[in-house]
């Protein structure tokens, strides 16, 4: 009687274990903190027009909060959409949809990163 590899490592046949479940919860808890924080700062800076928004997004704290919220949102979005795609689609459509899901999430994150760097260092 031998114990299977998946039972020793606890990672299952997909070799990912409960990673998806945990990442979804960790990003959810992060967003629980970041969403109110971001909304508060966003509404405060919004009254001051374009220059005020740029000053906030260019400040270390504003840039950090915005970078963190976009990162957490993109992670949470990708994992959540993955579940929905797996529930409703199969075969080739599922594969293509899952690829697009990952690509779009990464693309959105990179655009936000580019914008924040440009604002912070002046472009």
């Amino acid at each position: 009687m031998r114990t299977s590899y998946k039972n020793i490592t606890g990672l299952g046949s997909a070799h990912k274990g409960v990673g998806h479940f945990i990442k979804q919860r960790v990003s959810a808890i992060a967003l629980l903190i970041l969403v109110p924080l971001f909304l508060f700062q966003f509404l405060a800076s919004f009254t001051t027009g374009y220059s005020g928004v740029m000053a906030w997004l260019g400040s270390p704290f504003g840039a950090a909060v915005t970078f963190l919220i976009v990162s957490a949102m993109v992670v949470h979005m990708r994992l959540g959409l993955q579940i929905a795609i797996e529930d409703y689609f199969g075969g080739a459509i599922r594969t293509v949809a899952l690829l697009l899901n990952s690509f779009i999430a990464l693309m959105l994150w990179l655009i936000a990163l580019y914008a924040l760097i440009k604002i912070s260092f002046g472009g």
Partner: peptide, 18 residues
């Protein structure tokens, strides 16, 4: 699923500001 659009608008807003 609807909030995917929200993230897209947020990122567009950041890009437009930049």
């Amino acid at each position: 699923v609807a909030l995917v659009g929200g993230v897209m608008v947020l990122v567009t807003w950041l890009y437009a500001a930049a």
